[in-house]
Amino acid sequence: MTMGQDVYTVDLMKPLVFQVGHLGHAYQEWVHQPISAKHTPRFFQSDFLEFFTRTPWWVVPLVWLPVVAWNGMLSIQRGSSLQKAATLMVVGVLVWTLLEYTLHRFLFHIKTASYWGNTLHYLLHGCHHKHPMDGYRLVFPPAGTAILALPFWVLVRLLFPYEAVPAAFGGGLFGYVMYDVTHYYLHHGNAINDYTRKLKKYHLNHHFKSQKDSFGITSSLWDWVFGTLPGNKQK
């Protein structure tokens, strides 16, 4: 990082995380100017910290699908019928789609300007907008997912009876797995039909045309509900 008169420039050849905070108000413009090369930049000088920032896509289903299955079986053991447990998991998936939209729109795209605000935003989501084709920073590391899942677990416990909690939570977790796998596919997979072609175009619009719309990843449902479809003047 170099410093001029009130102007900061990030050195892309050096670890990035502790540089971006110095951009101040210029961070928002910088982070939304994507570098489309399939390059994995270095985040930290420490090899230990750097290891935890890189996650291959297949780690997500490998780690979390067994947890989804275990939660479904736990609801049945607590007294839910198979049909009820399956229905609760579908409800959990639907709740996740709303959470997916809400997190993406209001947390991942929060405006920051302070040193630590910029730094945390870059780690959470800004890095993905700066390097959208980085295949190792497209899905959440399991440790990060576990932290973000805690408030969702608390919410489910408040909304559902004892026997229903695991299935509803498992459904939400399954929705998350589908989200992360779909997200990776939209960046690195080849469209195989009209639906996947449209979904891919829809998401890449968010990266390369307008970051103020197209917040849904697995579906455009909530963009339609809340008026954030591409070209909608009400967003």
Score class of each variant (00 low, 15 high):
Val67Thr: 06
Tyr101Gly: 07
Leu99Arg: 02
Thr87Gln: 11
Tyr101His: 11
Pro66Glu: 06
Ala69Tyr: 15
Trp70Asn: 05
Thr87Val: 07
Leu88Gln: 13
Val90Phe: 12
Leu74Cys: 04
Pro66Arg: 11
Gln77Ala: 05
Val63Lys: 10
Gly79Tyr: 04
Val93Leu: 14
Val93Trp: 10
Ala69Trp: 15
Gln83Asp: 07
Val90Glu: 05
Leu94His: 06
Met89Pro: 00
Ile76Ala: 08
Leu74Lys: 14
Ser80Arg: 06
Ile76Glu: 13
Glu100Phe: 01
Ser81Val: 04
Met89Ser: 03
Val68Gly: 03
Gly92Asp: 00
Val68Ser: 05
Val63Thr: 12
Leu65Ala: 05
Gly79Gln: 04
Leu82His: 15
Leu98Ile: 02
Lys84Pro: 00
Lys84Asp: 11
Leu94Ile: 02
Gly92Gln: 00
Tyr101Asp: 09
Leu88His: 12
Met73Gln: 14
Leu98Phe: 15
Tyr101Phe: 15
Gln77Trp: 10
Thr87Asn: 09
Met89Leu: 04
Val95Trp: 12
Gly72Ser: 07
Leu82Lys: 15
Gly72Asn: 11
Val95Asn: 15
Arg78Ile: 02
Val91Trp: 03
Val91Asp: 02
Val67Arg: 01
Gly92Ser: 00
Arg78Trp: 08
Gly79Lys: 08
Trp96Asn: 07
Ser81Arg: 13
Ala69Ile: 12
Leu98His: 07
Gln83Ile: 07
Ala69Phe: 15
Glu100Val: 01
Val95His: 10
Gln83Met: 11
Leu82Ile: 13
Val90Asn: 10
Ala85Trp: 00
Leu74Glu: 09
